[in-house]
Design a protein around this nucleic acid. Sequence first.
DNA 1: TTGAAAGCGCTAACAC
DNA 2: GTGTTAGCGCTTTCAA
Lengths: 350, 350
Amino acid sequence: MKSSEKRNPTIREVAKLARVGVMTVSRVINDHPSVRTSTRKRVESAIIQLGYKQNEAARLLKGGRARIIGLIVPDLSDVFFASCAHTVQQIARANGYMTLVASSERDAELEMQEAELMASRMISGLLIVTSLEEGSERLWNLQRPDFPIVAFDRPLPGLETDAVLVENRTGAEGAVRHLMEHGHKRIACIGYDANVYTINERIHGYRDQMRSANLKTDITLGLHNMEDIRQWVSSAMAREKRPTAVFALNHRTSSFLLRVLTEKKVKVPEEMAIVGFDDFELASVVNPPLTTVLQSPVDLARRSMALLMDRIRSGKTAMDDAPAKIMLPTRLVIRRSCGPHREEDIASLD
Amino acid sequence: MKSSEKRNPTIREVAKLARVGVMTVSRVINDHPSVRTSTRKRVESAIIQLGYKQNEAARLLKGGRARIIGLIVPDLSDVFFASCAHTVQQIARANGYMTLVASSERDAELEMQEAELMASRMISGLLIVTSLEEGSERLWNLQRPDFPIVAFDRPLPGLETDAVLVENRTGAEGAVRHLMEHGHKRIACIGYDANVYTINERIHGYRDQMRSANLKTDITLGLHNMEDIRQWVSSAMAREKRPTAVFALNHRTSSFLLRVLTEKKVKVPEEMAIVGFDDFELASVVNPPLTTVLQSPVDLARRSMALLMDRIRSGKTAMDDAPAKIMLPTRLVIRRSCGPHREEDIASLD
DNA sequence: TTGAAAGCGCTAACAC
DNA sequence: GTGTTAGCGCTTTCAA
């Protein structure tokens, strides 16, 4: 018995079994209203009996869209984006869609290529965390009335799409304010890549907060690895008016900083307080547990997918309709890296 | 100018422009040998001139396979699998394939559904980290002569597929041996889920190594969160002959354990040594840096993809050919959580 | 409410 | 070497 050789039943076989025309079957499949209930019943049972399944390729060929959504992120191995991808796929599945993913490797050209490839596959919609720093005509050409694009985490430059973003600026302000409330006046801000939307927003937040408190800003970027951070710490600690607190722009920087300070036996938070942007699983495990600005990749993905599925279902993209802009809040997770605090502020360590 | 309305050029238009038949164009596209070079040139320039692109849907309809590979993992938000996914997608792209991903959420039924869905989309091949604990007929039916499946990290129960696995057992043995070399005799082994192939292998390795040294095994599973680990530590430390070292079965367990020991002011490695299975980014950042058994998700993905692409290209699956079994080694990354060591053993901390 | 026929863009099979 | 024809399974007319 070579059941694996059996081809899938076609709409024609269903039609024959139900003794109707193929069109009637097609109508039943796409639940078109004008089919008599009795006919519909007959067709439906024939479908079940034969185990008939729609052939996507044929539908595609006739100009339909594949029940697939695309997801492009800068780096799929990054925990944050991986978490987004996971949620996106879960929701896509729940809606009967599959998920095509791609890493852009933070490269604008690669990102465009992947997006075009996906579009040419007639996917139903695209979710994208862009690495584009400026708009391009190629990007413009992608946006078609029947191809919804939702930007998340970062807006698509020069394109009127739906977007789900995080309150990076407000989050950074809150972090810096927290440090100020602990009496800190010389608060440094460190990180690496500067040309990323989210990081820039955080820097803005830091700057605004410092200025509004009449404090001098102290920003160092380009700290790519632990060695860079070691050097920064050495020189910072040697300064006459050394910083007493650090706002770290991302989770790599904050964890590396903590490690370097431990290495150099600088006590945290007594001699140097830290707030990091981005919470991470081990933030509560390191010593001392890090106070961080939490942004939820799950929420980000959820909201973006909700938007995208809406667009797909309604058939209206941001081109006809007003584009939606959703801003997601951050939350300051207070642990122990910022010094003395009221007990009720302590986050659960589990 | 509404260039976005323009439909893609078809093979017929190319044929007309090149003044040849459609078949010749088709032959050029699929680089069939029997086309005169001069004709080929003409067709090629027509293709470029028109910006012609193959229509996958039409090829699919004719029974071809989509240039897509599928990837199913238990949990896409897990750093290890995310890293695998990233590498898989990179290699797929380099070979002109796109990547369809799905999380099985460690659920056998969901995994089967996703696999069947992917298969029904006529993807070229499937890469899978299975959560299946036993074979099933549905699984059998998936394996067709033209649908290669490669299992990685864990073998597919009851199915003769290619597989790329990690030397979990040997890795665990090495970890335990390392502890023994530091003079430890009472070595505990802790972790959570027990019904996972990889974890079982590690437990086997631990057991074998302990037995061959005539030491008593001391295994505790089901430690799901930090609280469970706290309790385990309390009771373990209270024992008359308390363990002096722990082999942690995965990275969550090892990092949580370290945190609990720090909390309880148990000195690592002086009072308790630790080796964890699975290296992780922050292993060198925690205090003390953890000695771990490193397994490379990148290698795992690379080897699996190499195998899969081979199968796709050759058109021979593990059904006609002998299935390949590749075992990847682990590496013990010696840091500071196992006590005194020779200087040359210290891994770079960066 | 239903059905017949005409393709969607491509390739396999067979002519020339 | 090259061209012609006949579908792949479906949906979109259009007619009944």
